[in-house]
């Protein structure tokens, strides 16, 4: 019950932050990667933690690791966005197979997906460029 309350609060806080951010992002200049990472972390704990684990290490043979993954850190951001939107099944990544099914997360907003991906690309030992709302929007439009 407590967790649900926390979840509600988190979502409420997220909406607040998100609204502020939307206003801020209209202004010229680079999108604030730090704020995106912070929002992405909150979302990661709610949406991704169970399978990908707190350390991004995944679960051997079941759930793919995100930390240190060449794909996660790579240039093909569209592929990452597509995985979040469509889910993934029967994946073989870097010679290892992962048998759990990843559900589609198309119910998340473009902003939420951008934040989550920006977070996982910059969490743990990862360091990579930001994923923007525009990039998510573009991939989502193509999938429709």
């Amino acid at each position: 019950m407590k967790a649900i309350k926390i979840g509600v609060l988190t979502i409420a806080a997220f909406i607040l932050i998100n609204n502020q951010y939307s206003v801020a992002s209209v202004q010229p200049g680079v999108p604030n990667i730090k704020a995106s990472i912070a929002r992405g972390k909150e979302l990661y704990l709610l949406q991704c933690l169970a399978c990908h684990q707190i350390d991004g290490g995944g679960v051997p043979h079941l759930n793919a690791p995100l930390d240190g993954s060449a794909n996660v850190k790579g240039k093909d951001k569209a592929m990452l966005i597509k995985i979040v939107l469509n889910g993934l099944k029967g994946a073989e990544i870097e010679g290892e197979s992962y048998s759990n099914v990843m559900a589609s997360h198309k119910d998340l907003t473009d902003q939420q997906i951008a934040d989550i991906l920006t977070y996982v690309r910059n969490a743990w030992s990862n360091k990579a460029s930001q994923v923007t709302v525009a990039e998510v929007k573009a991939v989502r439009a193509k999938l429709k």
Binding site: Q53, I54, D55, G56, G57, G58, P60
Partner: peptide, 10 residues
């Protein structure tokens, strides 16, 4: 063990 990866042996 917080994340599964942290376990040396299973």
């Amino acid at each position: 063990v917080t994340g599964t990866r942290g376990a040396a042996h299973r």
